[in-house]
Design a protein around this nucleic acid. Structure first.
Lengths: 191, 191
DNA sequence: GTGATTGTTGCACGAACGTATAACAACCTC
DNA sequence: GAGGTTGTTATACGTTCGTGCAACAATCAC
């Protein structure tokens, strides 16, 4: 049996275990028993702390999305002060670890598939992607793009980067990360 | 009980039922019993004709992918003879029915999630997307794009269209189909 | 018609699922 | 240290899962 832990600490452990299970076994493997075993606790704890598996997966989505956002921000911060370099870094970060990772794709696909039947998951997705596009609009603005063109450019950039990321993880042999960066660079050159 | 049917006809019915179930309930709902009920037959028939659910889902993937390809080709055929118009039609078809359909997205996400653990599904995906890109390279060639630029352009176009399609179905309020077409037109203008 | 083939059903089986509940144990308060 | 609070476990219950199997029935060969 596991030692008694503070509620927030135990919740964090369960969220981390859920992320591991989703990455390793997909949505189909995210059962109460498997998650609890991955966290080294008894299945009843999931109900106790989250009131059900669904709520735990929602919390995991928010956590993973925040981590992805952190990785993107870290790339921007490391890119220096040139607005063009910061924008490129934000996009290119999707083609390098820890984001370009088949395990993260598996997690993400699991979220998408679970969002089909859950209004809460769907709302989380809409919020997350809106934030992603909003950040991109700011970076575009700093490079001097006029305000009325930013929105559609952000829509296109998000779609392009996401599509490349998806296929990079799903069919690793089709093209390389360097080629993905080159494609994005070509798109940004036309801005 | 269902009347006796020819094997190919029964197989086709089961595949169609699987597609309906995947669209309506996602990968989680694609159980032998639910699929058989949707087809109006007994659960044992799935084992009898396909040897297991996994094989049935694989066959459904191939069938749905072929239908999507048909829809894209129909759009090209309806676009006339101008190479530019044919290329644009091939891309824009992803933002109109029957492809821009949340039910099709649900089906596709189910395939992705099942591909995580099935080598056969993964191989089908790689084959399907390679065909998609190859068709795009031909259409690009017909518009006069030099041969050595076609491959990366096709990679980018596929990713852009896929990303837009995904987000169009997943967050319907974020942007419109017309805006998606405008984004693609902007990308093609830079070619 | 008769027999063989095979599509089809209904059931049974073991396993895994989510969750409710009661008992246990660790910690905090006083 | 005694008592209350609450994190934790173990068990139990009903449901659903995939599939193997024996029986039934429709079709075909002859």
């Amino acid at each position: 049996m596991s030692k008694r832990a503070a509620p927030e600490a135990r919740r964090a452990e369960l969220i981390a275990a859920t992320a591991r299970v989703l990455a390793a076994r997909g949505a189909a493997g995210a059962s109460v028993r498997v998650i609890a075993a991955a966290a080294g606790v008894s299945p009843g704890l999931v109900t106790h702390h989250f009131g059900g598996v669904e709520r735990l997966v929602e919390a995991t989505y928010d956590h993973v999305a925040a981590r992805v956002g952190d990785a993107l921000e870290a790339a921007v911060a490391a890119a220096g002060e040139s607005p063009r370099a910061r924008l490129a870094a934000y996009c290119d970060a999707s083609f390098a670890p820890p984001i370009a990772d088949p395990a993260l794709l598996a997690t993400w696909i699991a979220f998408w598939s679970l969002a089909q039947g859950s209004a809460a998951m769907q709302a989380s997705h809409v919020r997350h992607y809106a934030g992603y596009r909003a950040r991109l609009e700011v970076l575009l603005g700093e490079t001097g793009v006029e305000a009325d063109r930013r929105r559609l450019l952000a829509v296109g950039l998000t779609a392009l980067v996401d599509g490349l990321w998806l296929e990079l993880c799903l069919s690793p042999g089709a093209f390389s990360a360097a080629e993905a960066r080159a494609v994005v660079a070509g798109y940004l050159a036309g801005v």
